[in-house]
Write a protein that binds this DNA or RNA. Structure first.
Lengths: 113, 113
DNA sequence: AATCTATATTCGACAATTCGAATATACGAC
DNA sequence: GTCGTATATTCGAATTGTCGAATATAGATT
């Protein structure tokens, strides 16, 4: 059971482990958005968008609703936004270190020519 | 910048996207633990443990400290536990559905023999 | 029914992840 | 220095994830 729970968590994180999928979820912060609108806003291929949406659906992170010949997506549980917000705090906390590391690498490369 | 943040989040989630790595982080809730102790508690191969620890180190999720010929690991920022705690709330909220799904799968398999 | 538009799925190529076995490194004890 | 213990890295094989192109499906319009 403990193992099953960890597997579920891992699967969930796996579903979030792609920048396009993060972008999709962020677009849904203020409510449902159609697949077509997502494609337009993110500037990605139609098939690719559909594949990523499929991943998020499979993990029950998104739900969809058909209206005419359009499909509207929304997040199933807004708790997921809390996770993303914490991640932003985490990123901000360590941003200076990240940038320092990047600069150090950059300088070292310039020294080497 | 927005893209960088998304990539950062995606990388972070990718690092958490394995049950063994989740188990490792859970073991570190109360403070640092040696690599050997982790291997013992999780019952996994030494090389495998080292590889997973390497992934978590690369993403700066874990830091380590050498003492004699042992290496002690700990989480860099306890904010990560907040993420896991929210995930636990998420799973509790949806646990009944998860269990229903699992039972349905189980029954279907038994029917098929 | 024919057709158009929106979305989903399949396919094949390529990249990334995961594992255990083997090997390498770091440190302490002798 | 050599040996033993703890940990890390490398290697090759198998699996999984990702992409765009092509194709399929669902519903609206005529």
């Amino acid at each position: 059971m403990q193992d099953a729970l960890r597997q579920f968590k891992a699967d969930f994180f796996q579903a979030l482990a792609h920048p396009t999928r993060i972008a999709i979820i962020e677009q849904l912060r203020d409510g449902e958005v159609s697949a077509g609108t997502l494609i337009e806003r993110l500037g990605i291929e139609q098939a690719n968008a559909s594949q990523h949406l499929s991943v998020l659906r499979a993990k029950n992170i998104l739900v969809n609703r058909r209206a005419g010949n359009q499909v509207y997506y929304s997040v199933r549980d807004p708790l997921i936004f809390e996770v993303l917000d914490i991640m932003r705090r985490y990123f901000n906390t360590h941003l200076s270190e990240v940038l320092a590391t990047l600069k150090a690498i950059d300088k070292a490369e310039k020294r080497r020519g």
